[in-house]
Amino acid sequence: MSQNNFKLVECPRDAMQGLHEFVPTVIKAEYLNLLLQVGFDTLDFGSFVSPKAIPQMADTAEVLAQLDLSNTATKLLAIVANLRGVEDAVKHTAIDYLGFPFSISETFQQRNTNSSISQSLNTVEEMLSLCAKSNKKAVVYLSMGFGNPYGDEWNYEIVEKWADVLVGKGVEILSLADTVGVSTPKKIEAILPKLISRFNKTEIGIHLHSNPAERLEKIQAAYHSGVKRIDSALKGFGGCPMAADDLTGNIATEDVISFLHDNGENLNLDMDKWNEAMALSGKIFG
């Protein structure tokens, strides 16, 4: 299987956004510039959200200005949470993708984006229209896609219903997101193959959070479910500051890389640059 069949999305934005100490813009840019040389399909590099909500991402536009895109095929993705964020993000020609967290849990949609599910659907429609005008693509995350800690109703039918609605609106990339680490191999294998076969014209990805002990079994379940787009973060840093649990971070990219290598996938990554990024990460994450 060739590289363009497998899309690895590296998520330094997700890794950094919950850090309490502000990471200087120049260090963020240095880290991202290394990651841009590794050969990932996409870099989830920043977000255009309220600096009150996520202070760490207040300098996304400044960071972007310091990125060297002259020698990389990696595409840039920025997260937005409302129409204002969409309008800010589409002004930047260097950004390829806008990502929107569409929660299928009403409680979490309110907590995360300060809007209801139905308001968020309007935002997605506006985003699709602005993306089309500015030559960008929308990535919509089905957030709380494996359940939620709030007691909001969750089942496969709800996941499928919202996937159906979003694809019907014109969303071409959907990523099933486990914001709080409640996914299990069993749930992954029950949900993903159905979504992939039902929405076979849509790119279906996965964005998992996990504690370290369960990472590998989740990667394996996603792989065997036929997923070709995987979000992860170096060393598994990060997680969602709006759904706090210190142990539940991102899936570690090095685990994804070694799993895929062991399964004969050729990822064409520059592992020297990767190791440099691993070394530099200590400056940011301590």
Rank of each mutant, 00 (worst) to 15 (best):
A221G: 04
L192Y: 13
Q56A: 13
E265L: 11
T179K: 07
A78M: 06
D41W: 11
Y141R: 04
L77P: 00
K52Y: 09
P24V: 06
T42N: 14
E217W: 00
Y31P: 12
G181K: 00
K194D: 03
L280T: 01
L166C: 07
Q37R: 14
R198C: 06
K283Y: 09
F259V: 02
E157L: 06
G18V: 06
A138K: 11
G181H: 04
S2T: 15
L128M: 00
Q110L: 12
N268G: 12
G238V: 03
N4Q: 15
H224F: 10
H224V: 05
P193T: 02
V227A: 13
D41F: 12
N200P: 11
V63I: 14
L269R: 13
T184E: 07
S175Q: 11
A221F: 02
N135Y: 13
D270K: 10
G168E: 01
V139E: 11
V124D: 03
H261V: 12
V180A: 05
G236S: 05
Y150A: 07
G18T: 09
A277M: 12
L176Q: 09
D231M: 03
V49W: 01
H207K: 08
A277C: 09
V23G: 04
L174T: 11
H224R: 05
V49T: 07
M1P: 09
R215D: 13
N114F: 08
G99L: 04
P55K: 13
R229N: 12
S197D: 14
E217F: 00
L8M: 06
E265P: 00
W274T: 02
E10I: 04
G181R: 04
V180S: 12
L69P: 01
G239H: 02
V180M: 06
L192T: 12
N250H: 11
K91N: 10
L176P: 08
D262M: 14
G236C: 03
L260M: 13
L192G: 09
Q110R: 14
L208T: 06
T42A: 14
K137E: 15
P55I: 02
H207S: 12
G282M: 01
L260F: 15
S143A: 06
L121W: 03
P149T: 07
G85F: 00
F108N: 11
L76S: 02
Q66D: 04
E214W: 00
A279V: 05
Q56W: 09
S175E: 10
V23I: 15
D44G: 00
V182E: 08
C240K: 03
S143C: 08
E217R: 12
V227Q: 01
G239I: 01
I79N: 07
Y31D: 01
K91D: 06
A233K: 09
G39K: 13
A78E: 00
I79L: 15
S129R: 15
Y97T: 09
R111S: 14
V159Y: 00
P101L: 05
F48T: 09
R198L: 11
I204R: 01
I117Q: 10
A81L: 13
A177E: 06
D14S: 10
L176E: 10
H209D: 01
F102G: 01
M242W: 04
L130Y: 15
E157F: 03
E157Q: 14
S115K: 05
A29S: 09
M278Y: 10
A53G: 04
S118Y: 12
F259H: 07
N275W: 03
E126G: 04
A279T: 13
K169E: 14
G39P: 13
